[in-house]
Design a binder for these strands. Structure first.
Length: 457
RNA sequence: UCCUCAGUAGCUCAAUGGCAGAGCACCCGGCUGUUAACCGGGGGGUUGUAGGUUCAAAUCCUACCUGAGGAGCCA
């Protein structure tokens, strides 16, 4: 079955204007390694950093990386001037360098092409590079995150992340959503202040946003289909591999969309973006040793279970859960176990969910909310709901949750002036990236992770 | 906040009460097809901090610091 992936049809370099200074510098005088095949049989110059060097007395192999790929340059002592041989000998791990030579296909070389070097020029030396080609501990590597991202697996993860972000934007653009950037500095909390980072705002308190949702609901009334995609901050003292204090969240909000449509939108997003990763990131997934069969299995429809059904199933499995209890990590794992695609859990008791969730008209004890649990233990990647659109009910819920009414007046205006049913969800970018890449910990799914114990570098 | 585990060379680790060691990295030498190359040599230590037990502590005890994994909470 052919997937819809939203991948653009053009290739990147074809769109670049010719004759600009940066174009000459980047694409004419030198060749990016990802395009080295186009130079096979001729001469080329690459510039980048030394990934590794091996020597065997009278021959040296320089592995050069430039961010787009890896190229092995061969320096045979007999074939090059003495100063070129010596420059190659001086080249140390991660020094920057420029290498010119003839390019040819070579099966023995990583990448399939190899350069016979005619000149080697060291641009910037690198002495005592701390990350050696052996094992290191996580704390050590995270202290060197600015350098660690040069390493092949970290580099691959961040390339996949970039592709995922682009795929998400393409997904919503193609469906005629309007991008609405929600504020990062906010004056009021969505729910309580215990998980908010507080900052001084000219003598008043301000908080770093933990969700763009409240700002998107009014925008849905202005534009119909909207989404935001930005950083989100949670001051939760979570100390697990599934949590960051700063992470990126994608939040669509759609006017007149009911709950069933919301679940389909969430499914479509997951399937489309995962398809795009499979189509465009094969090389990176291979470097990450990701089992792509697991990703190919991510197809519609996803299995669904209501909270009530989940409680029954868990009780049958021996868990002591009853209606009204929150599902913990063990319970979620038990439900998602043995599934090859995400599980949609829906219709939770109102008491354990957010104040703005719409009650199910057929079962008023529960609300039209959904959690999507990724397979392979990656946990909740999406949480969303249909929103309450009745003013009186929303006012009642704000009171029940003991929220400061004044701070929500502007939000209530959405219900005062032409209220409408609407739905939305939030997807955690890093959880999706970690899942796609098959990496163990969220901190490797973001360039500079912020966790309970880390704000450096 | 709670529970569990760990801090020894730049890095990864060994030494379990008796002389502080190995591999990698770095420096020197060797090798014309290496794939985390390999072979030989060299320099490199306040054993997280403070106190205690002991003839003797990396090792046992106490406190603290730092980190990791998990719970809760969530994306």
């Amino acid at each position: 079955m052919k997937r819809e992936t939203d991948a653009p049809r053009f290739t990147l370099n074809a769109q670049l204007p010719s004759g600009t200074a940066y174009n000459r510098a980047l694409f004419m005088d030198t060749t990016t390694i990802s395009h080295i095949g186009e130079k096979a049989g001729g001469s080329a110059t690459v510039q980048g950093w030394l990934y590794n060097r091996r020597s065997s007395g009278k021959i040296q192999f320089l592995i050069v990386r430039d961010g787009t790929g890896y190229l092995q340059a061969v320096v045979p002592r007999a074939d090059v001037p003495a100063e070129v041989w010596e420059a190659a000998e001086r080249a140390s791990q991660e020094c920057s360098l420029r290498v010119t030579g003839t390019v040819r296909e070579e099966k023995r070389a990583p990448g399939g092409y190899e350069m016979s070097a005619q000149s080697v020029e060291i641009l910037g030396p690198s002495e005592g590079y701390p990350i050696t080609p052996k094992e290191h501990g996580v704390d050590f590597l995270m202290n060197l995150r600015h350098l660690w991202m040069r390493s092949s697996q970290q580099h691959a993860v961040l390339r996949v992340r970039s592709e995922i972000e682009q795929a998400i934007r393409d997904f919503f653009y193609r469906r005629e959503f309007t991008l609405i950037d929600s504020p990062i500095l906010t004056g009021s909390a969505v729910e309580g202040t215990s998980t908010l980072f507080e900052t001084d705002y000219f003598g008043d308190k301000a908080y770093l946003s933990q969700s763009g949702q409240l700002y998107l609901e009014p925008a849905a009334a202005a534009f119909g289909k909207v989404y935001c995609f930005g950083p989100t901050f949670r001051a939760e003292k979570s100390k697990t591999r599934r949590h960051l204090t700063e992470f990126w969240m994608i939040e669509p909000e759609v006017a007149f969309l009911r709950f069933e449509g919301l679940v389909e939108l969430a499914e479509d997003l997951i399937v489309t973006v995962m398809g795009r990763v499979l189509e465009r990131c094969q090389e990176d997934l291979k470097r990450l040793e990701r089992d792509t069969k697991k990703l190919e299995a991510i197809q519609k429809p996803f299995p669904r279970i209501t909270y009530r059904e989940a409680v029954q199933k868990l009780a049958a499995l021996g868990f002591s859960v009853k209606f009204g209890d929150d599902l913990g990590a063990d319970e979620e794992t038990a439900l998602a176990k043995d599934l090859d695609r995400p599980l949609v859990v829906s219709r939770f008791p109102a008491a354990i969910k957010s104040f703005y969730m719409q009650p199910d008209p057929e079962d008023p004890e529960v609300v039209l909310g959904l959690d999507m649990l990724a397979p392979e233990g990656y946990g909740e990647i999406i949480g969303g709901s249909e929103r309450i659109y009745d003013l009186a009910l929303l006012e009642k819920r704000i009171e029940e949750h003991e929220l400061p009414r004044d701070a929500y007046e502007w939000y209530l205006d959405v219900r005062r002036f032409g209220t409408f049913p609407h739905s939305g969800f939030g997807m955690g970018l890093e959880r999706f990236v970690a899942w796609a890449c098959g990496i163990h910990h969220l901190r490797e799914a973001i360039p500079y992770p912020r966790t309970l114990k880390r704000i450096y570098p």
